[in-house]
Write a protein that binds this DNA or RNA. Sequence first.
DNA 1: TATAATTACTACGACAGGTAAAGTACGACA
DNA 2: TGTCGTACTTTACCTGTCGTAGTAATTATA
Lengths: 114, 114
Amino acid sequence: MISSDVIRGYNDTIILSLLLEGDSYGYEISKNIRQITDEQYIMKETTLYSAFNRLEKNGYIESYYGEETQGKRRTYFKITPSGITYYKEKCEEWDITQKVVNKFIKELNEYGNN
Amino acid sequence: MISSDVIRGYNDTIILSLLLEGDSYGYEISKNIRQITDEQYIMKETTLYSAFNRLEKNGYIESYYGEETQGKRRTYFKITPSGITYYKEKCEEWDITQKVVNKFIKELNEYGNN
DNA sequence: TATAATTACTACGACAGGTAAAGTACGACA
DNA sequence: TGTCGTACTTTACCTGTCGTAGTAATTATA
């Protein structure tokens, strides 16, 4: 299981990446993350919605109500141009982060795994 | 610059990876991280020393005083067997994390970089 | 000789992101 | 009528990071 401290700071990026595919809402995004990662990563509800708040506050996404006439009303989110820019920045940062962390990760059998 | 939220949760792993090379102390580890990453990642002093406390509390490292007869006394750290186990677990976790996050990271020119 | 820089920490408080727990609200189905 | 699935919201808490500051000894520089 992936610990929260590891992926922390990338939850926003994950959400933005899904919004690049089209507007969506909390529950759907949550399900998509599960599916895409084969249940390897499940974003907690509170994490998800607090990320929406943060992203909107920062101007990276915009919200609007759906037109559902039945069921609970959905809040849809749309990525903004500055959200796209931010997403790209995070992609570049991720690239560097991977390289940095990998310098400290050894091959698993290097220290006598058997 | 790598944001702290990204590498958070891997500071402990980075420290352990250096202690696998041999016992060391705060200042030296700090310098090594700078060097190894070409200044791409600089761990803050407070982060470093609070990580030492956490690691020791969890039994992943042990501390002892150095034999210096001059200069300020150093606290050396040594990785324990359970620290090695923990390190290996984090390596495996990192492997999964990379794969998961990479599913949400697009090629940078995919969305009209120009 | 003074003082700045480097080495090697320690203490304190603030902050941000993640999370558990609980609750609200609606529709479907048995 | 009750439970399940959808779709959130609120609150309060925890943890890791970090800014700031201070201590203490040695070494470099003016």
